[in-house]
Design a protein around this nucleic acid. Sequence first.
DNA 1: CTGAAAGCGCTTACAG
DNA 2: CTGAAAGCGCTTACAG
Lengths: 341, 341
Amino acid sequence: MAAIGDVARLAGVSKSTASRALSGGGHVAEETRLRVERAAAEIGYVVSPAAASLVTGRTKNIGVVIPFVNGWFFGEVLEGIERALLAAGYDLTLYNVAGGGEDRARVFDYFLARRRVDAVIAVGVDLDAHEVASLERREKPVLCLGGYAEGTPRISIDDVAAGRLAADHLIQLGHTRLAHVGGTGAARSVRSVPGGRRRGFLEALSSAGLAPGGRATVVEAEMTMPGGLAATLQLLGHPGRRPTGIVAASDELAFGALRAAERLGVAVPGELSVIGIDGHEYAEMFGLTTVEQYPAEQGRIAVDTLLRLLAEGPADDPLPDSGAPLPTRLVVRSTTARAPR
Amino acid sequence: MAAIGDVARLAGVSKSTASRALSGGGHVAEETRLRVERAAAEIGYVVSPAAASLVTGRTKNIGVVIPFVNGWFFGEVLEGIERALLAAGYDLTLYNVAGGGEDRARVFDYFLARRRVDAVIAVGVDLDAHEVASLERREKPVLCLGGYAEGTPRISIDDVAAGRLAADHLIQLGHTRLAHVGGTGAARSVRSVPGGRRRGFLEALSSAGLAPGGRATVVEAEMTMPGGLAATLQLLGHPGRRPTGIVAASDELAFGALRAAERLGVAVPGELSVIGIDGHEYAEMFGLTTVEQYPAEQGRIAVDTLLRLLAEGPADDPLPDSGAPLPTRLVVRSTTARAPR
DNA sequence: CTGAAAGCGCTTACAG
DNA sequence: CTGAAAGCGCTTACAG
């Protein structure tokens, strides 16, 4: 396969000049550059990333750690990241850490520990101290998108605010018997996506003087449509103490809740209002009122931030827009209405 | 960062021996190997893939070309591939070619043309002659999963058989007024997933003596739930000529069809039977009868096949199980029943 | 079983 | 603006 020496020979220059013309920043006469470029095109030369990164120390490759790729949010984020990376000439190497146990350890201790990636984006996973330390030792910047890791920059919507916004919407519609269908683990940690949304829900209730005790029910489910279905079936089981409004921690949970209502013959929004969080692509079809977020855009922002960080080195001002949560928007459709009297 | 020279020094051996102990196949005394391994662990040595692949010519990295990662089938396949690759010590570099235009050309002419991947798995994309040629020139094996590319091995279910199986199920239940909700492009090419399934549907009808002309309706839609909803709404629009059975080219289309029936007050399966193809994770929740396939498993098989191919080189018998379509299974649930009289 | 040496394909100071 | 040379971190014949 063609190497840079072949290009140089064909163009009648040295390898140094060929290299500079093709990629290096050094100055090359316009005419020379053209000659080299033509030679490269002629023999179909493409740089060897291995050789280049061996000397530059840069791989132009970003590792993405993600718990699953199935699931609307994760798929969208991944596509957003991929598009942005490709545009910047970077590769994306994917690491699935659904397993947790040994597989996960292997990703951090072996795959990510080598010099194959310049930096890491962790999507929806919480990294423990050991994992962060391992990456830091290798001088690999880490950016969290929707997950937490001590001491690393983080990009995310304000989950507490999103939960509050959803609950407030129902409260303003006059609902007083509210329930929350949250994601698994919501109770365990406020510093998690389901935990934050649940806390927002509870805060809104307190602010409105609706004691969470007797009047609000909080259940947990896997964040999928079947999860929402099962949990809501449970919730609507006792006709006497039925909530009139449900805040679901995700749109998929909300879809499941809608289906549960249908199955039990509970009219939406006549007898029951349902609101989700996400802005899932199917939300419109279901007529679901929801708090939208924009994961593909979030992925793009994560890439921009990380590449800037990589370019500047560990600057004094590592994250210009750090702290500012990502945008979110309440979209009212037909699953929420005034509380029934 | 620790290099192999450091390990060698600490273990009191040469770099050659250290290399052999850590990765090379050469014989190393058991005691020496232990000493080297301990030294490596002590200073946290991890091999530099760039340096290694520069000399071996192998990257231990596989490129996956995929049109989107959102969508149940694609997500499952990707997870299956990733798990299998990780287990084999390989990296997965992801290339999204949803765009088609310039972005797609860039993936094939630049990203995939470099020596960054050893081979390519194309998931659900058809490669044109130029793209295949470009990969071949770089000596990169290509494996197609659910897509087509001239002259490259292909792994897939038999889409025609799947379509036939689905239709036959309804025919055996006595249905004679059948409709097909297919994926976009089904009419254009039989050598495409939607095209194959549609052809299978039509074949089954012919075999049963149900002329596709007057009695069967065939519509196309984007292969999503909203797509299926819209197409089925259309299909059920004329109460007089309503089909009693719908074969959907995918489960998501079928979910949409179910929703359309619900909206129009058409009882399933009393007045209308619906069958899908896929085995989507939500199929059970919807009670959907479907022809299951197993994309995660397909991803694993793709990896196994490709790695074997890579190990053996372009052998005489490149694909032992080539031609044998991947497994499929009819799962009957509650959306199909005897045709109404 | 082990070591010295060459070389994979680049980029980058260093001179000129 | 251009070239000769060193070197990035490994692996692999080749000897011994």
